[in-house]
Computed example of a mutant assay.
Amino acid sequence: MSELLRLDNLRKVFHVRASAGEPAGELVAVDNVSFTLPPGGSLAVVGESGSGKTMVARMVAGLETPTSGAIVLDGSPVEAARAGRGARKARARRMQMVFQDPYTSLDPKQTIEAAIEELLRAHFSWDADRRRERVAQLLDQVGLDRRQGGARPRALSGGQRQRAAIARALALQPRLLILDEAVAALDVSVQAQIINLLADLRAETGVAYLFISHDLGVVRQVSHDCVVMHRGRVVEAGRTATVLDDPQDPYTQALLSAVPRPGWVPRRRVGAQQPTAPQEVGG
């Protein structure tokens, strides 16, 4: 199978200055990470906060420069620091990113329609009628109507803003969409709607997903393959169902054991005040 995205021994090291009596040193955020993603595929990078998963996403997106290693997207290397304007525009047409908080990635002074049209104007020499037609198509694809398209971000709900961010990310018909905790800030019912939308969009457009998440329940629903990261390293990788149903690495096993299951009751902390009356579980 051909490769859309390939990471070879990706490494990111930060140099830490000496302070408060501590000597200078190095912080290894990402350590020799390698994986591939096929065209139209869906791969999740899983781990706790500080595992390095978001740094991997930022390097793939060209927002951070690797200390060493290589990122190849659609046959071309991703080079953050040395990329000129033309190279950045070409990369934007192949790859887009959807962030956890869409409010920070959308201009609060622009309507959703204007934000999408601005992107189209920057990349295509289309007339106004064709841009408006494409904007209407994108809004319909993500389940937004004309009224919502004409609104500013603050007038929309969290789920609607995330739909708008997805529409804008799809405007240039990229081959890869990086979703960095894209449903983590949403209510559970809205999460389910966005997950279903993402599945429909991938089937409709053939776009590939690189999904960054700490939520194993979400990962199971959105990805065919997954990579588990711990302290900057890949500790386990494979088909999502296999990794989550039969984890081999102790860290993956620990992640799964921490997921609440049906009937789960939180343990009372040692020294916590005892309830004055029996408490019902549920509600």
Rank of each mutant, 00 (worst) to 15 (best):
V45S: 02
V45M: 07
V45N: 03
V45K: 06
V45I: 15
V45W: 04
V46L: 15
V46W: 09
V46K: 10
V46Q: 08
V46A: 09
V46M: 12
G47C: 13
G47K: 10
S49D: 09
S51Q: 11
S51A: 13
G52R: 12
K53V: 03
K53P: 00
M55A: 15
M55R: 02
M55K: 04
V56A: 06
A57C: 09
A57R: 06
M59A: 03
V60D: 03
V60M: 11
V60C: 05
G62K: 04
L63W: 04
L63R: 06
E64Q: 10
T65M: 00
T65G: 02
T65E: 12
P66Q: 05
P66G: 00
T67W: 00
T67P: 12
T67C: 01
G69W: 12
A70H: 14
I71Q: 01
I71T: 04
I71K: 02
V72K: 06
V72T: 13
V72A: 07
L73K: 03
D74C: 00
G75F: 11
G75L: 05
S76N: 11
S76V: 11
V78E: 13
E79N: 13
E79T: 06
A80V: 13
A80Q: 06
A81L: 15
A81N: 07
R82E: 13
A83C: 11
A83V: 12
G84R: 11
G84P: 07
R85C: 03
R85W: 09
G86Q: 10
A87S: 13
R88C: 08
K89L: 06
R91N: 04
R91P: 02
A92Y: 05
R93N: 01
R93E: 01
R93I: 00
R94I: 04
M95I: 03
M95L: 15
Q96H: 07
Q96R: 02
V98S: 05
V98L: 11
V98F: 10
F99W: 08
Q100G: 01
Q100Y: 09
D101L: 10
D101I: 09
P102Y: 01
Y103V: 14
Y103A: 15
Y103D: 02
T104R: 10
S105V: 11
S105L: 11
S105G: 08
L106Q: 05
